[in-house]
Design a protein around this nucleic acid. Structure first.
Lengths: 363, 363
DNA sequence: TTGTAGGCGTTATCAC
DNA sequence: GTGATAACGCCTACAA
């Protein structure tokens, strides 16, 4: 039940007109041309180069001159023009992190990792929520950043390879792509899934169902492979392809679980391709009074924060997101520095045992 | 219980050396100077200006010439230089969203709102996770973006006002700041808190405790004010300042609730300054077998996603994050266009009633 | 220690 | 329809 308060002071919500912006530059709006280094130099009574020196190599200009320049700069509220600088320097000292989805501490952790490494080397970082294709074009194709870390399944491999061909420094996450001038990093989806499935067998479950993600999801495919391997090891013939495909959402998990229940034959454990779907599974099981973990075991993948709050708490496979970010940035820095890199890096996952499966202490 | 798999193929984790980057430019790494529009023009046998026209005003150049230019551009893998363009155009067509914290669908929703509006007007958006002060300097002071939306309590008012003085187009969120050339947008924290508290009274609780956020949090102060107002309206003398200060984290909520229980006198309802703390409250109450909502009512603030997953589900005050993003970007566009703006906008909140307080149908 | 001059890659204004 | 040419603002040899 949601009770909306009234809207207060929102004023004009009508569409803002958008045409015509093309012709307008910022300073023309206000009639206040921005001061340039030239103005600073003039006011300080020095040449442009001295002014520039004062900012970039303070030691190379006399104390007295420098303070005069700094004062002038302050008086004029001078702000250097980044574009001019970048153009001249031929470097932006900035990297982009391209994400499709922002929600969840999941990505936030990744970004943290990147940030920390970037900071250490004085690199700046911007995140682009690359819903729009031209957004990535702007950043990468037009060299507005020196390099990029890409975690966005919706950017096509062609685009990525094209950029790599042009030696644009790039680290791609969770992609099955190799290129001489690119680093590809991924968590060990296959291994994590294998461990999870194997654990379920070890915990006494016999009939383990894999609830896949979207057909085209590489992650889901890899996880399925790990599942298959564990089945084979347990002398069970695995299906050649997943029996059910969700869409990585809670709703998808609900739907697929309902289908499963309607189908008559019930497995005694479910390994869901991600936590979101596992949440859906859990919900439907609860509605049908199927006891977890007694009547049905469940393990997810990702370790999203909510996993700890549902009851029973969700067992899952944790991806090392922070470490992924750290590694990604480190490798990007190597690319940027022209140092040799490994083309492919895989990071291990960990099995997090909580309430949706028995916790075997001897494991 | 967490079982780490081994690390696989991580290779060299040692520190990347960072000095010496200063002298190196991207192309020098590889020895591949990037082709410029000049190269394209030469290969196509036209002048630079014609090449430029072919890209920017295709209709103004002969069909045949144009295709020749495009071909040359493809052959050379030409990529325009953004910095040069921005410098010449004096506009980046990009805005920045400055966030302190990324986690939670909370901020993701805000960003979505901004994105949608930005897209409509062909503006690009980058997010900066402004942990580092120079990151915002780079973006804002050096004009690498045309404008910014700021939601980060850790950026000081001085910095903000300084930029505003210089007419840098900026929309600030959740700040008690006014400036002629700036738009300030906030959710109605005070009103939302008032509604929540009033509702608790209406639901039959008499002794409502406010668990505040950090002392210096404006949001928390405003919410306290709403709480006070509701108390006064109920003919109860409110405390002049909050009796307990958490830190907006779950752990803080736990700590403060434990203090409360230890203190002997128990209220019959708690209004927590945010959901994170409310989660902590809930946890401690559960541990002490205090029935919610029967023995204790509870309402939080924010409506984070987890609120729906705990049991009982958390009642809360929802901030219109998406709408906040939309509004912020719309106002920013107005600033950018030099159109008149309201200096201050307040958006209404809504009370979301779930399991931690009775749901009064007649409300 | 400071000034002169050239150029980074574009786009736009003019001529032709 | 196309081509010189001049900025945009900054940095850095090099010269003084």
């Amino acid at each position: 039940m949601v009770i909306p308060n009234q809207w207060i002071g929102v004023g004009d919500l009508s569409l803002t007109m958008c045409w015509g912006y093309d012709q307008i530059t910022i300073e023309s709006f206000w009639g206040y041309p921005m001061p340039t280094i030239k103005d600073v130099a003039k006011l300080a009574g020095v040449s442009i180069s001295t002014a520039s020196l004062a900012f970039n190599h303070p030691s190379r200009v006399a104390e007295e001159t420098r303070t005069r320049i700094l004062e002038a700069s302050k008086r004029l509220q001078y702000r250097p023009n980044g574009a001019a600088r970048d153009l001249r320097i031929r470097r932006t000292q900035t990297v982009a992190v391209l994400l499709h989805d922002l929600s969840g501490p999941f990505y936030s952790e990744l970004v943290q990792g990147v940030q920390v490494e970037a900071d250490r080397c004085r690199y700046n970082m911007v995140i682009s929520h690359s819903n729009r294709q031209d957004s990535i074009g702007r950043l990468l194709y037009e060299n507005r950043v020196d390099g990029a870390i890409l975690l966005d399944p919706y950017v096509s491999d062609d685009v990525v390879l094209d950029l790599a061909d042009q030696r644009f420094p790039m680290v791609v996450l969770d992609r099955d792509l190799s290129h001489e001038f690119m680093v590809s990093i991924a968590a060990d989806h296959e291994g994590g899934a294998y461990e999870a499935t194997r654990y379920l067998f070890g915990a006494g479950y016999h009939d383990i169902f894999y609830m896949a993600g979207p057909q085209n999801s590489l992650d889901s495919q890899l996880r399925f492979r790990g599942y298959q391997r564990a089945l084979i090891e347990a002398h069970i013939t695995p299906p050649s392809s997943p029996l059910a495909h969700g869409d990585f959402t809670e709703e998808g998990g609900i739907r697929e679980t309902q289908n499963l229940l309607a189908g008559g034959h019930l497995p005694d454990a479910i390994f869901a391709a991600n936590d979101e779907m596992a949440l859906g599974v859990l919900q439907v099981l609860r509605e049908h009074h199927i006891a977890v973990p007694h009547d049905m075991g469940l393990i997810g993948f990702d370790d999203i924060r909510i996993a700890q709050y549902v009851s029973p708490q969700l067992s899952t496979v944790r991806q090392p997101m922070y470490e992924l970010g750290v590694q990604a940035m480190r490798q990007l820095l190597r690319l940027l520095a022209g140092e040799p890199v490994q083309q492919r890096i895989v990071l291990g996952t960990s099995l997090v045992l909580r309430g949706t499966c028995p916790v075997l202490s001897e494991y």
